[in-house]
Each structure stands twice: as C-alpha cells, then as structure tokens.
Write a protein that binds this DNA or RNA. Structure first.
Lengths: 193, 193
DNA sequence: GCTCATAAGGTACGCCGCGTACCCTACAGG
DNA sequence: CCTGTAGGGTACGCGGCGTACCTTATGAGC
C-alpha cells in the first residue's frame, strides 16, 4: 500500500492523536502506546521526535490550543477586569483547562518542563494584557498612575489560579470572580492613590 | 526470633519509614517496596492499613509535620504580615515543602485526595490566623474595619502559593515577600477605607 | 532508472512500580 | 493448649515508559 506518511505529515498526525488523547483522557491517561496506535504509527516515530511523554504532552497541548489573547475594552476598569477573569475561568474550566492542570501537575517537580509550559501557555502575554488594561484605566483617570505595576496587574490572575489549586477542580463560580474584582482588585488599585 | 511487631507499633514504624523516604526522595520517589523494606516489613502490612500509595503519602506527611501555627505580634500590620509570609516561605522552601508540593501535584487530578490534603495541611488554621491579625490591626486603628474580610486576609498567602507554582521550585526571594506586602497587601487594606 | 541513506513500520523486550494472591508463622487471648 | 488474627515472605499480573533490532518503503542524487 503506497503512501507511507513522512516528516511533517506524520508529525501532525501524531500531534493530532496526542491532542485527542489529551482531550479524552487527560494527561495522566495519555499513554504513548495509545497515541501511537491512534496515529496509525508506532512509538519509534514518536520518540524520534520528542524525548519523553511530557514533551509530547506539552507539544500536543500547544497544538490543541492556539488560544487567542483577549483584550477587552468595556470602558470601565471593573468591566475589563471581570471580562478577563471570566474568559480565563472559561478556558481553565473547559476540558482544555483540565488538561492544562494535569500537565502542570506533572511538571510540578520538573523545573525544565515548568519553564517549557510557561513559555507555551501564554502567561506572559496574559500579564501584559492586564498591564495594558490598567494603563488605559490610568489614562482615563480611572486609576491612579501609581497603581500601574506588575504586582497589581497580575494579582487577579494569581488569585484565580490559586483558587483553582485549592478547590479540587472544575469551575470557579462567578461570585468568586466578582469578589476578586470588587474586594481585592479595585480596592487594591484605589489603595495606590 | 521473638518480638514480631504488631498493631500500633508496626504502624508507627511504617509511617516513620515512609516519612524518611519522603524526606529523601520526595513523594514521586517514595515506593511501596522501599517503604516496606525500610520499615522491616512487607507491603501486605501497608496495604492492610492504607488503600494506596497516595493515602500513605498523606498520612506520612502529616506524621512528618505537626507544624505549629505561627501567630506573630510585632505591633504593626506590616511586621505581622511579613513575618507570616516569611515563615510560610521557610516552611515551603524546606525539604518539607518540596514534599508537600509533590503531594499536591500528585493529588491534582484526584479531588478526594485534594480535600484530604487540605484538611491535614492546616490551611484553614492559617487563614484564621491572618484574619485574626487583620482584626487586631483594625482594633489598633491601623486598618479600616471594612478591610477585615476573608478575601483580603487570604490574598497574601494565595499570592505566595501562586508564586511557588510559577517558579519552578525552591524558595521565593525575600524581596518578593516584601513586594507582596508593600505593593499588594497594605494598599489593599488601605483601599478598603 | 538504480542505488542507497534515511525514516517509517513492526515487534519484542527490559525495567520498574503498584496492587494482589497465597501460604506460612508468630502471638494474643480465651 | 488451641485457635483466630495479623505479620512475614514471596511471587506474580498488569500496565506504562523507553529501547533495541530488524524489515520495508521512499525520495534524492547519480
């Protein structure tokens, strides 16, 4: 039977299969044998490309989510912040996020993987978006200029992340997001005046 | 040879061995066979008491750390907060903390284990300590009464936790703790006026 | 077209770790 | 003294990762 796949085509097939496994079984359930079987190939082809399961997991996750970065502009700082948190919450509580958390958990005792993850999960982009948002609010006179600081900008996402880590899993209720904004973020911004 | 250990004695021996393995190899390196060998017994005795590795890990961790809860009273809110963060940072960056993080990572996709962990890791006690601290500050007139809220009280620890999750591992530098206090916690409290 | 290095496919295997089964042996308590 | 219970010893099944080794297609270069 002709047509033996090669190079890029095969690579995409593997990533596709790995992503599907991730979706269905999470990272801890993604086995190399099943990925190989599903991609209609064998483990050799995989190990020739990625050194170990974790690397494949990360690559597949990236392939799975090319999440566009939000940049809301509701006109008020409160609205923008809430919107950002809600989108993040949606992303993280989706199957997507479950996978991401699984990966993170697996990477927790492997610094190398952790940095790989951070690079590829767009955390930096996210932080910059928050800072930009704060900056626009300051320009509108809605926030003191002194509040435009990384620590302030990243605080809400940090809190959301921590909330996920605390609760077992699925989704953080919307009230919590509102609390983070109204009881922490906005007072925090105000407090910098 | 006489003296075959039984019941509680044996149980303690197992926990002791498991704790030692945790210390030396972390959770991911703690194998049942080695725990059994080190305790001078066999896996049967272990599985008769704990249903799986994770349960033993948690029990051993608890056995390992009966961490006393701090309750600093430096006279200022800033001093108290910094002290609390520093102690937490010390705990978490010690071998102890590494183990705890390993356990947490392992428990990440198992809600049952997560709740078990939370119960036993004294997170609630910690939160109450922070709230008490805030309350005393309010009583001294150092903080507005409106700032005495759980979300506010737990924010610094949440941020520290998130900081650990972000960076690969070991210890969060002291400057970060200071930033959390000066750029987030204190402005946040002030902002509730 | 032919040749040949290269990459894919097939398969089996080593290793390790978890959890279980089975049988033997000490020991406590009646 | 006898017996049930719990500990000890050992072996094993299973699954998953990563590796080894050989066979087979394929496309690039002559």
């Amino acid at each position: 039977m002709g047509t033996r796949r090669r190079g890029e085509e095969l690579e995409r097939a593997i990533l596709h299969a790995a992503a599907a496994e991730l979706r269905e079984s999470g990272y801890s359930g993604m086995t190399m044998d099943r990925v190989a079987a599903r991609a209609g190939t064998n483990k050799n082809a995989i190990y020739r490309r990625w050194p170990h399961r974790a690397a494949l997991g990360i690559a597949a996750y990236r392939h799975l989510s090319d999440a566009a970065m939000p940049n809301p502009d509701t006109g008020t700082l409160r609205g923008d912040a809430l919107e950002m948190l809600r989108r993040a919450n949606e992303t993280w509580s989706s199957p997507h996020g479950t996978i991401l958390r699984g990966l993170l958990a697996a990477a927790a005792d492997d610094p190398e993987l952790l940095t790989l993850m951070r690079e590829r999960s767009g955390a930096d982009t996210m932080d910059r978006a928050w800072l930009g948002m704060l900056d626009r609010a300051a320009a509108r006179g809605e926030a003191p200029a002194a509040a435009v600081r990384p620590r302030v900008a990243t605080a809400p996402m940090m809190l959301l992340r921590a909330e996920y880590a605390m609760r077992g899993i699925p989704s953080v209720p919307d009230e919590v997001l509102v609390e983070i904004v109204d009881e922490v973020f906005l007072p925090l911004v105000r407090g910098h005046g």
